[in-house]
Design a protein around this nucleic acid. Sequence first.
RNA 1: GCCGAUGUAGCUCAACUGGCAGAGCAUCCGCCUUGUAAGCGGAAGGUUAUGGGUUCGAGUCCCAUCAUCGGCUCCA
Length: 599
Amino acid sequence: MSDNNGVPYEQSDLYRIRHSAAHVMAETVLEFYPEAKLAIGPPIEDGFYYDFDLGADENGKLITFSEEDLEKIEVRMKQLLKQNARFEHSSMTVDEALVFFADAPYKIELIEDLVKNEGVEEVSIYTQREFVDLCRGPHVGYTKQVKANAVKLLRSGGAYWRGDENREQLQRIYGTAWHNKAELDDYLHLLEEAKMRDHRRLGKQLELFHLSPLVGSGLPLWLPKGAILRETLENFLRTAQMERGYQPVITPHIGNLELYKTSGHYPYYKDSQYTPIEVDDEEFMLKPMNCPHHIEIYRSKPRSYRDLPVRLAEFGTVYRYEKSGELNGLTRVRGFTVDDSHLFVSPDQLEEEFIHVVELIQYVFNTMGFNDFRARLGTNDPASDKYAGAPQMWARGIAAIRQAADKLGLNYVVEEGEAAFYGPKLDFIFRDVLKREWQLGTVQVDFLLPERFGLEYVGADGEPHRPVMIHRAPFGSMERFVGILIEHFNGAFPVWLSPVQAVLIPIADRHVPFAQEVAAQLKAAGLRVEVDDGNERMNKKIRNHQLQKVPFQLVVGDNEVEAGAVALRTRDNENRGVQSVADFVAYAASLIDERSLTL
RNA sequence: GCCGAUGUAGCUCAACUGGCAGAGCAUCCGCCUUGUAAGCGGAAGGUUAUGGGUUCGAGUCCCAUCAUCGGCUCCA
C-alpha cells in the first residue's frame, strides 16, 4: 500500500489519486441524488470509499445503491474526470463553514469535532467545478490526473456513521484507482486470484471442512482430510511445547458462571457469549476463554517459586456468539480451538519467559514459511472503560513487553486501545502472498487475573508472592490458522502437511496389486498414501489428483512392476522419471522430516 | 444485529416477460485395459432452502423464517 520508494502512503501520488477519485465520485452521486448528504470519503488501502446518506423512501425504508446505479455512476464519473476540472484548495473560518455546510449534518459534526478536539479556527476546503467538500487533502491538481481507465467502482454496502451501530446507517461505495490501466488490471487480477484461493472454495474442493446449517452456522465440521491437516499442526506444536517445558492439560467446554464472574470475563464478553445453561439452580457457560480453567489448575495445589514458570497448554475449544453477519468460513466462527497456554511466572522471570514465547512464535511462523509479518504492541486506552486493573499494572506490563521486544531486536508498532481487557499484548500480524494482513499469534501479559483469583506461590523467603500470567497462542486459533494456510498455499500444502502425500496410479488393473504393495511400504515408512484403483484412464487419474493437489503421484505400469520401481510425477507437473521405492521413501521422508516448503 | 444481494441434483450452472424442471462434472452399471491433466455408452439422482400467500397455473410474483455472499462493528 505504500509507494515502493518508501514514501508514506499519505504523501504518495496514489493517495492523492484515490482521494480525488472519491471526490469526483461524490460529485457524481450528487448529480443522481441531489438530496444525498455527504459523510466522509477517504482513500484506503488499494482504493477509496465515500459514505452517503440517501434518506428513506415513503415507507421509511433506506434508499440504497443498486448494481445498476453503480454502473451509471461509474460511467458518469469517468466523463467528469476527463473534463479536467481543477481541484482548488481554499479555507473557511469555522463560522463560515458552519453556515456553508448548514445542509450537510455530517460535515457539521466533523467541523464541530475539529473545533472541539483540535481547536481549529479555519477548515480546509477543496472544490472542483460546483462540488465543494470539507477536506484536509491533498488532491491531484486536475481531475484528468486521475486516469478514467484506471478507476473502477467495486461494490456498495451499508456502513454506520462513524462505525457506530447506534447511529445512522449510510450507504458506502467502494472504488479503486491506480496510476494507469495496467495497474488497475493487475489489481483486478489479484482480486480474481484471491477468489480462486478462497479457503471456503478450496475447503470444499479439497474436502477439508464442511459447514452444515443443521449443526449451526459458524460451527465447522472437520472432514477427514482437514482433520489430518489440523492434527499435524497440533502435533507439531505439541512437540515444540514439550521441548520447551510446557505441560498439557485438558479442561471441559463449560464452566460455572461464577468462574467467569471471578475472572471478569463475564461483563466483557457478555454480548458475545452463548446464553448460559441453567442446571440445578446453577448457571453454566460455554467457555469463551480457557484462562479461568487453567488458573484453577494452577490453584489446585500450593506452588513454590521452585515450580515456576508453570506452563499449562491446551488446544482448548471456546465458544463465542458472533453476530450472524460476521461469520466467514473458518476465519470467523462461533466455536474455535485456541492453541492456548497460560504461563505463571515470578515477576523477575517475566521478561525472559516472554522472550521464549516470542521465539516460539517466530519458530512456528518460520516453519510455515510465513516470512512477512509484523508485531503490534496493543496498549490500553486510558480514556476507555474497557480495561480493568490499576494503571501501574498496565505500565509494568507494557514496560516488560517493550524490554523483551528490544532485547529480541523486534520491530513493532504501538496501537492504543488494542489490548486485552486484562493486559497489554504483542500480536503478530502476518501478511499473506496476496498481501492481506491477518492477526495470528498473540502474547499477553496479565497482572489482573492473578489478583482476581488470589494466585500465590511461596518464595525463597517463605512468604507468599503473586505470580504474573502470560497468555499466548502462536497459531491463534486452529480454524483461522488453517483457513489462512489454505489460502496462503492455495491448497498445495507442504508435503508434511498434505492430507494425502502420495497417490499410487496403476495404469491397468493388472498393476493394482503391485501398487498396493508399494503403498503398504510407504505407509510403513509413515507416509499418507492412497491407491487409485478406479477404472479410469491414467490421464484422468492424474488430472483428479492434480486438482486435489497431491504432491506426489506415483505411476506404476508394466515397466515399474518389472523393475520394482515407481514413476514419480509431482503436482508441479514435473515428471521425475522412474526411481526405486526406497529412493522415493528416502526423498519424501527427508522432505517431511525437515518440513520442507518445496518439493 | 443492521443494509444489500443470492438460494434450482453431491458440485458448477441453465430454464425470455408466470405455462411439462434441464446440462456438464461427480455417483452407480456396463464396455475398453489404458504411459503423465477429462476414453465410450447407459442408469439413477429434485417437495426448486423452509413455511405461508396471490394465481386457472409459481423455480419465476408477495410475506415470513433460515442459510450463504458483500459491507458496517468486533475479534482468535
